[in-house]
Design a binder for these strands. Structure first.
Length: 139
DNA sequence: GCCAACGTTGGC
DNA sequence: GCCAACGTTGGC
């Protein structure tokens, strides 16, 4: 299993929106960046990811599971763009802020810190378990 | 609200 | 195929 991070502006698509979709989940559509798309094409059903709020919030708020492999993005006819489907798994007990991530030696090399503009990105197993521990997630 | 960083587009 | 111009994202 691999680990990822999905970034979203809460005003566009928030954790609460994702939770409201329940186990049926929802397409992670609207990605128009090749790097982010390529990562989605690498995903398998069962992969886990963090859900991160960008802009004003800037914090990890929960975990998600990939429930469908990459398929054409239904919001465009442009066949270049694929996306996966994800469902909400678990909310963090306390959100982990970007400042805390930057200040943590284990996490300061995260893609989130190094390439802040990438909206879908890989997370290492070490980063995953460390964040789960810090935020009270069951992994 | 500003601006740096980055990605994309299009002219040459 | 290079690079300038432009648009977008997201942290501050």
């Amino acid at each position: 299993m691999r680990y990822w991070l999905f970034k979203s502006e809460p005003s566009t698509w928030s954790w609460a929106d994702q939770v409201a979709k329940g186990d049926a989940g929802e397409e992670w559509d609207g990605v128009r960046n090749y790097q982010a798309r390529n990562f989605m094409r690498e995903m398998s059903v069962g992969d886990r990811g963090f859900f991160y709020h960008s802009q004003k919030a800037r914090e990890i708020v929960g975990t998600v599971e990939v429930i469908a492999e990459a398929h054409p993005d239904s919001t465009t006819d442009d066949e270049r763009w694929d996306c996966v489907d994800i469902r909400a798994l678990e909310a963090v007990r306390t959100p982990l802020s970007l400042d805390e991530i930057k200040g943590d030696p284990v996490l300061s090399e995260m893609v989130l810190v190094k390439n802040s503009r990438l909206s879908v990105q890989p997370v290492t197993e070490a980063e995953w378990s460390h964040i789960c521990k810090r935020t009270g997630l069951s992994t």
